[in-house]
Write a protein that binds this DNA or RNA. Structure first.
Lengths: 201, 201
DNA sequence: ATTTTAAATGAACAGTTGTTCAATAATTAG
DNA sequence: CTAATTATTGAACAACTGTTCATTTAAAAT
């Protein structure tokens, strides 16, 4: 059971997270100040520290939440498909669509990151590891069904796979102002490239 | 003809660039202060501003120089090969080897970048554009020789190609402390993945 | 209604850093 | 050798920001 007091606390917490998301997305990590965030959430700066240890903590809480929800919906949608290829398709699509929806926030990755936080910590976070493991499992399944050569190590291929997707996304983010194509439309190309390469015939 | 005065000026400039390279590599952009850099170059902080407009300018001058030298040696080595596949091989190898040699400096990319500078500006820099164009030309050649399907747009494929390499490098940088494999050894895998995908048989 | 407990505030603190510029030192010219 | 020019210096400036904490305000308990 959750007390009224606790629920209110959660609400305030999410007020701050919401403001943080907006400002991190708008200005990047360094240029979004605690003052800004507190102001947007309609609190004083000190209040932020009643909910988060420090600025880093706030940022990672936000990130963890985002990734958790991405993994959750992806798993859910992938589970509905039967054959492996379809699963991979949905996996890619879901990933791209999530980034498209949250593009402002994820823009931080191309704009600025601070020393030791960056991806190293993200990948090692609980949800990060879960995601990596889930992806490897999916590809292992694809290997079993003969879709992917058994020469490759599943974990390694999983890395490359997510890397490609990540890269496509980053590139897309960077050129968003120039082109105006849909990110999800790229999912076919990605899978083709990954599964069949670009070889002729 | 270059006067003594000018040569000395160039020398001081490169003193500062050298120190900047070391400290940016060691601490990242934000945490490497002008004071640090000046001190290591054995100058006072004010002197830096006699050679560079500001910290940003210093950073980009460094980056431009690095990229210029990379493009130059790559072009030189690639030109020596005759068949296209070999050219691609050398291209990949050269890229990887350059990053391996300058890994400390390029570590900045995974550790921290500031707002509007990041890759957007790099890619649009003169050398960045030249590199992109050169890569596209190489892939266009590969298309002509039937190595790559003509369905693809050369510029687009060039992007994906460099993206994959970049990603592999970033991943490698991130895990350098964990694994200890050689970056250049990955070139074969990269080309295989790119040209043939990971399809079975 | 009064006391006790908890939450929120925001001014003040402490530290940092890019940048400037008057003063100083070194170089060059006459 | 002296004067003029140029380069170098580094203390001082100004602006910023994460974080704290004494004080105020609100809520809960009695």
């Amino acid at each position: 059971m959750i007390s009224r007091k606790e629920r209110d606390k959660q609400l305030r917490r999410s007020d701050i997270l919401k403001a943080a998301e907006h400002l991190f997305a708008l200005k990047g990590y360094h240029k979004a100040t605690i003052r800004d965030i507190a102001k947007e959430a309609q609190y004083a700066s000190g209040t932020v520290y009643l909910h988060f240890k420090d600025k880093n903590d706030l940022y990672f809480a936000l990130l963890e939440e985002k990734m958790k929800s991405m993994l959750f919906t992806t798993k859910e949608r992938v589970a509905q498909a039967n054959d492996v290829k379809k699963k991979l398709e949905i996996f890619v699509q879901e990933g791209l669509s999530f980034f498209e929806k949250n593009q402002d926030f994820f823009r931080i990755f191309i704009s600025e990151e601070d020393g030791y936080f960056s991806e190293r910590k993200i990948l090692k976070s609980s949800t990060g590891l879960q995601t990596q493991e889930y992806t490897a499992g999916l590809l292992r399944e694809a290997q079993k069904k003969g879709l992917i050569s058994k020469d490759f190590d599943a974990e390694q291929i999983a890395e490359v796979f997510t890397s490609i997707i990540k890269t496509i996304i980053l590139n897309w983010l960077q050129k968003k102002d120039v082109r105006n194509n849909n990110l999800i439309d790229l999912s076919g190309t990605i899978l083709r490239l990954f599964l069949k390469g670009v070889a002729d015939k």
